[in-house]
Design a protein around this nucleic acid. Structure first.
Lengths: 249, 249
DNA sequence: CGCAATCTTGAACACCCTCAAGCATGGTGG
DNA sequence: CCACCATGCTTGAGGGTGTTCAAGATTGCG
């Protein structure tokens, strides 16, 4: 499968968290200057991963969570049947590894979908710091709670919604996350393959392809490989709520 | 819908967490005696709820998490379409409300499925205590991480598995949770309706009914309304891994 | 330029849903 | 105490959405 070549050289210049372009998305968001400095002391910056490289692997000893700084990461688990199940996609400013804190091993594999840089948060040090900085603890509780909610949202999507609704939801989710990152919410490149999308959404690759084609012929989007333009966001939002249309009233 | 009569009278005798029958499942599990006493000071025991009563309601101000002491609780969210989506079932020793900590309001509704008693954990006090008791903080990180994992597990079930696999998985999950609670893992009453099961597993009620009937005729279980006996656990486990059978090798 | 991987398109089938009706169950009031 | 009704559960028939299988088109990279 993917190449496992990992370049783990620290970047020459250490950027402070305060001056990081993600400071309004990431942990500093919740901290004052003094506390950010203490956080900086434990954060390991500058690790980078080529496309296909593993940030961490399922079953390996759990050591750290990772904040995506640039690029994109996919998490997946290998089931008892040997099948891969994609559990999430992580964009800059988002934290990977929160699901592995209840065990001594990573509960999933995290793979870079493109050239990606991360900040490493060694968990035991982070935990120690959190007891001294209540707002950091509070922020982490919030992050984890949000992660539970996200995962519930996915379950909801999978259990109740049609293929079209699932794909429209994913596109809109990516759109709003790019927007937060100050990137275009209407014109972006998908970091993941059709196959990853299908796996994540519980669909066959063929279905993903068909739905994207259909959206395109309806004028909702323009898709050229991984390059996506959202042409009619309101219509896409309508698709995600489509099945209320069934009820007459 | 369900009656909302809530009896919130504290139980006459305050049982200490140390002497609670759940002390090996619940929070004291991770704490020493001294810390358990500090925990006890903030825990509000003895609230009870009749069948159908709401422990808390979606959108209400978030104040506390709740540990189920006896009975069972169902959580659900109302979607934009006005549909109900069941997000979880909680048995004694399990904590409800971890998904609401990232907001000021409850992100779901928690309803008692039968006569239920709970312990209330006021969140702000709990958070404060956690900064003073590192093992408590650690334990909460673990609980929340586990909750993320559980929810991912559900997504996996919903996205990849057939109706039979989903239902077998639920039965086995309940079985092992009853077992942990020192109840029979092979003979129990379902606290929830077929309709709740169907909703939770993303199936139609009819499908749930049919699969249970099929399991019965195959001699895997015996079902009489909500009374369930698991007759062949190994065969049920085989069902949950059924689809690896597709691959020849 | 050519091969491999990814993506698209088509046709047939399977699983599960919907609709519809019949059957238990249990709580309520006469 | 039993009839009654509401609710929940079961069973059957038909149809739709998405899967599977198969083949062709496109892309990307050596």
């Amino acid at each position: 499968m993917g190449q496992r070549i990992t370049t783990a050289q620290p970047s020459p210049v250490k950027i402070t968290c305060n001056h990081c372009s993600l400071s309004n998305l990431c942990l500093p968001l919740a901290l004052d200057d003094n506390d950010v400095n203490r956080l900086e002391d434990i954060v390991q910056q500058g690790q980078t991963f080529n496309r296909g490289a593993l940030v961490f692997e399922q079953q390996a000893p759990f050591k750290s969570c990772f904040v995506v700084r640039s690029g994109a990461v996919k998490t997946s688990v290998i089931t008892e049947n040997g099948e891969e199940q994609v559990t999430g996609f992580f964009l800059p400013g988002e934290i990977v590894g929160l699901d592995s804190m209840s065990d001594d091993i990573y509960s999933c594999t995290a793979k870079a979908l493109e050239y990606t840089s991360v900040c490493e948060l060694p968990f035991s040090q982070l935990e120690h710091l959190a007891t001294h900085i209540p707002t950091l603890q509070h922020h982490f509780f919030q992050l984890m709670s949000q992660e539970i909610k996200n995962s519930q949202q996915l379950s909801l999507l999978l259990s109740k919604n049609s293929a079209e609704e699932r794909i429209a939801s994913l596109l809109l989710s990516l759109s709003s996350r790019f927007k937060r990152r100050r990137l275009s919410p209407t014109h972006f490149n998908l970091p993941m393959s059709r196959s990853d999308i299908a796996n994540y959404l519980g669909l066959a690759v063929e279905t993903v392809s068909r739905v994207i084609t259909r959206f395109q012929s309806q004028g909702l989007i323009k898709a050229q490989g991984r390059e996506i333009q959202l042409l009619d966001i309101e219509a896409l939002q309508a698709v995600t709520r489509e099945f209320s249309k069934c009820r007459p009233t």
